[in-house]
Amino acid sequence: MALLKVENLSKSFSGLKAVSNLDLEIMEGELVGLIGPNGAGKTTVFNLLTGVYVPTEGTISFKGKRIDGSPLYKVSHLGIARTFQNIRLFGDLPVIDNVKIAYHQHVSYNTLSGILRLPNYYRGEAEIYQKAYDLLKIFDLHEKEDELAKNLPYGQQRRLEIARALATKPSLLLLDEPAAGMNPQETQNLMELIRWIREEFALTILLIEHDMSLVMGVCERIYVLDYGMVIAHGNPDEIKSNPRVIEAYLGEEAG
């Protein structure tokens, strides 16, 4: 059974179709890419999948359950986590707190224990801290745990967003342009990191990316979006040689 199944998904904004009749299927453990020129509707798809937008038409099923129309936090509880194209960290908070907050849905004590500082508060906090710290270590951010997130360099902010998303313990991770603004070396490292976390956390990953080398290098399957529609889909080699894809991208360059 597919982990994520999207059927006939459409979204219009005041009459303008941003996504139309999208069909998408992702199997458990896959690493899938979603590419397309600027304004093709890629981020809109993410926003639909995570519940930021309610679809105009169509259905989204995750683990066999309908999730279209569910609020964001419920989608997160079901196991979909994401990063944002325009980084949305908790900028005025320390790096470690960014991760701790994402761990909140798994917290082991309740509000009252927190206020009364019962023993399980201390146990819970110690556990949250340890888990958050371990995650930061994976992303090589542990030495910056007390720094404010907004003061991190760009590349580290992107990595922190991934670490934060992982703290929600997702089974599907959506990465929105994780390599944006990174240099080739950083991108290379990121590719390895993405492969590694997929194994380590038994994840399924869907990623949006502009950097073709990254997409072609890590993704097993690719969907190409243009004007809100899937114009091609297949493995990297098929996509590379697809005339419609070439046209869509050349068209963008020319325009």
Binding site: T50, V52, P71, L72, Y73, S76, H77, A81, R82, F84, R88, L89, F90, G91, D92, L93, D97, K100, I101, A102, Y103, H104, Q105, V107, Y109, N110, T111, G114, I115, Y121, G124, E125, I128, R164, A165, A167, T168
Partner: peptide, 23 residues
Amino acid sequence: SSHGRACISIRENEIAAEAMGIN
């Protein structure tokens, strides 16, 4: 507490907080 941090995350970025599973 973790619940207080959930509140602070709303101040910091409401959509990100929601996406991280905070109601």
